[in-house]
Design a protein around this nucleic acid. Structure first.
Length: 483
RNA sequence: GGCUGCGUAGCAAAAUGGUUAUGCAUCGGUUUGCAAAACCGCGUACGCCGGUUCGAUUCCGGCCGCAGCCUCCA
């Protein structure tokens, strides 16, 4: 299979260092706020990558870190007047809840910066011993970028250009403006850990170097994250890790594109972000996941209600195809579709094409259902299993269409009462449960039998107002679903 | 200014040196009491200008436009 490698700027045939085994590290969240759709993209993209590797039979170790100490966390905790650990725990919990909703499987290891302090200190000490890092005039420890000759190889930058475009205020404590902090001295009252250089905390970049090599070894296969981490974060990670170990750090660098709003990057600093928590109120999480996978992971992804609505309609089409089909364990699979799907995924995880295979499969399944063909179960099972690789289509269709709520009545009503009520459903409370919908459906079927089209249409229209869609079938039965 | 990347039909989004992407929307048909869903049919799109080629949306060059990074950000 081929994967686009940021380091070489081209698709390369992927070869794990150890046959059959893959180590993958992805930069995770800094937990001082809720996850937004941009974070969702990273989670979903690399979850899909992980699922596919495992499907291909690789033994994958997937590590995704949590940054649970940094300036923003300290500031936010101070604003709230709470312990930073209380703050981070709250947002870690919220993140895990978002992940579960999006069917993002947990990574194998989820290291936290605050639990990796010894490894961080050890790596900084090595860098100082090797002459790649120094203690600045303010006591902070800095990485000496000019000492690392291949600095800039990932982002395609060179030191001269960087200096020419310098727009950071020069920190007097540094020897060179491009040098970055490895260990930051604590101000009074700030969270801190003891180190050979005094009480302080790790810089942002060092934690990822320490945690990744700690969990996966000095040299591993894949490192991922958002595009914006290419520089300086990942560049600095390379400098730190390769500087400290003297070995190649990572073979393949994968970066996902941004989520945009009105053609601008969605980001915390621009304030144009939508949190998952909020979006989930309006759209099912699976719709969000589908929306993300409908574009290639390296392309920009424009966020809008229109896009989400279309994703919902599209996904509904797939669930409609799966509706009313019995599934059998160990059903035969349709190889042709599996092959087309795999071919797409083998080409740098081309999920839009993989999804198009799902739609072709759905069309054939719909035809098979109409014709009552023999291969209905195989088609449906294949569709579901391929969907599973993308983390979609795993709900029971009754659940997707909102037909799985309680079966008993909420109201004490006679049939007479129901017949009266059916004539003016606008009086019926919103969010009718299963039993009541079934009841009204029956009343409508009776109306149809006696060719009382007016009443039948009225019931259908009124229910539509409530987001309940009735569909008559050729065999005279009626099915319903929630929008 | 430097460095990346992008520009595809109404919208979204892929592949591809000559052959159907796909989804949504629209239109026509089948079906239906009418709908809905489903099925069938319908789209000659590839920023502009040159070049290479028998042939370019696809390769090369220039231009224009957009985005990202160069400061915390997935």
């Amino acid at each position: 299979m081929k994967i686009y490698n940021t380091l070489t700027r081209k698709k390369e045939v992927f070869q794990p260092r150890v046959p059959g085994k893959i180590g993958m590290y992805v930069c995770g969240m800094t937990v001082y706020d809720y996850c937004h759709i941009g974070h969702a993209r990273v989670m979903v993209v690399f979850d899909t990558v992980a699922r596919y590797f495992r499907h291909k039979g690789y033994e994958l170790t997937y590590v995704r870190n949590i940054t649970d100490i940094d300036d923003k966390i300290i500031n936010r905790a101070n604003e709230n007047g709470e312990e930073f650990t209380a703050l981070t725990q709250r947002f870690i919990d919220a993140m895990h809840e978002d992940e579960r909703a999006l069917s993002v499987l947990p990574p194998d290891v989820e290291p936290k910066a605050t639990q990796s302090i010894p490894a961080i200190i050890a790596m900084i000490a090595t860098l100082i011993n090797k002459g790649l890092a120094y203690v600045g005039t303010n006591g902070d420890v800095f990485y000496s970028v000019s000492k690392f000759t291949s600095y800039g190889k990932l982002s395609g930058k060179n030191l001269a250009d960087l200096q020419a475009g310098e727009r950071v205020d020069v920190d007097q404590a540094k020897q060179d403006p491009l040098d970055f902090v490895l260990w930051k001295m604590a101000k009074p009252g700030e969270p801190s850990w003891n180190s050979p250089w005094g009480q302080g905390r790790p810089g942002w970049h060092i934690e990822c170097s320490a945690m990744s090599t700690c969990c996966l070894g000095n040299h591993f296969d894949i490192h991922g994250g958002g595009m914006d981490l290419q520089f300086p974060h990942h560049e600095n990670e390379i400098a730190q890790s390769e500087g400290a170990t003297g070995e190649t750090f990572v073979n393949v660098w994968m970066h996902n594109g941004f989520v945009r709003v009105d053609n601008e990057k969605m980001s915390k600093s621009l304030g144009n972000f939508f949190t998952l928590k909020d979006v989930r109120v309006k759209y099912k999480p699976e719709v969000i996941r589908f929306f993300i996978l409908q574009s290639h992971y390296r392309s920009p992804l424009n966020y809008s209600d229109q896009q989400l609505n279309e994703a919902k309609t599209a996904l509904e089409r797939l669930y409609t195809a799966l509706d009313d089909v019995l599934f059998l364990e160990d059903s035969e699979q349709i190889v042709e579709y599996q092959e087309r799907f795999n071919e797409a995924m083998n080409d740098d995880f081309n999920t839009p094409v993989a999804i198009s295979v799902l739609f072709d499969l759905a069309t054939e399944l719909n035809i098979a259902k109409t014709n009552k063909s023999q291969n209905i179960i195989e088609l449906a099972s294949t569709l579901r299993n391929l969907g599973d690789l993308l983390g979609i289509l795993q709900l029971d269709s009754n659940s997707w269409f909102g037909r799985n709520d309680r079966l008993e009545s909420s109201y004490e009503m006679t049939d007479e009462d129901w017949n009266e009520l059916a004539k003016d459903i606008s009086k019926v409370p919103k969010d009718l449960p299963f039993y009541e919908i079934e009841k009204l459906k029956q009343i409508r079927l009776d109306a149809k039998r006696s060719k009382n089209w007016a009443l039948a249409d009225q019931i259908r229209d009124e229910l539509k107002q409530q987001g309940i869609i009735l569909e008559d079938r050729p065999d005279g039965t009626t099915s319903w679903r929630r929008e």
